[in-house]
């Protein structure tokens, strides 16, 4: 039986170019066959998600930085909540930040849109776990 490989599409929203580069490279090296979308602030991501032209290429997971210009992570989650129901698929949102500010951490915990708050520097295995756990196709276990 031929199994069609279903890739997980991850989306990273961060204004830090080096982090994005590293994130993509890491996915590539680890062979987690995920497609990566990236945006340098919340506004760009919302524009993309709302655009019907991209409706077939929506991410499964969003990693969003907190501190960004134009539209920060908090405002992104508010905007995302408004359009979530129109997405036609479940999208998990993770906050990813270097901030150890307890206010930020609590705010993320109390935000129903955010699945978890991931502190930078990121744990590579944890990211891999998240991406893998989203891969629910039958062929998943055969993948390496």
């Amino acid at each position: 039986m031929s199994v069609e490989r279903q890739n997980v599409t991850a989306c990273i929203i961060d204004d830090d170019d080096i982090f994005i580069y590293g994130f993509k490279k890491f996915i590539e090296i680890r062979g987690v066959f995920a497609e990566i979308l990236h945006f340098s602030n919340g506004q760009e991501a919302i524009d993309y998600l709302k655009n019907p032209f991209y409706a077939d290429n929506l991410p499964d997971i969003i990693f969003v930085d907190i501190n960004m210009p134009v539209m920060d992570g908090w405002e992104f989650t508010r905007k995302f909540e408004e359009i979530k129901s129109r997405m036609g698929k479940k999208i998990c949102v993770y906050a990813i930040s270097s901030s150890v500010d307890i206010n930020d951490i609590n705010r993320a915990k109390n935000n129903p849109v955010i699945e978890d708050y991931i502190l930078k520097p990121i744990s590579e295995t944890y990211i891999a776990d998240i991406i893998n756990s989203c891969q629910i196709s039958p062929g998943f276990s055969n993948m390496n």
Partner: peptide
């Protein structure tokens, strides 16, 4: 802490 952490994190990465 935020800034040093983000640079340090990137460096390790």
């Amino acid at each position: 802490s935020h800034n040093l952490r983000s640079h340090a994190g990137n460096l390790k990465f």
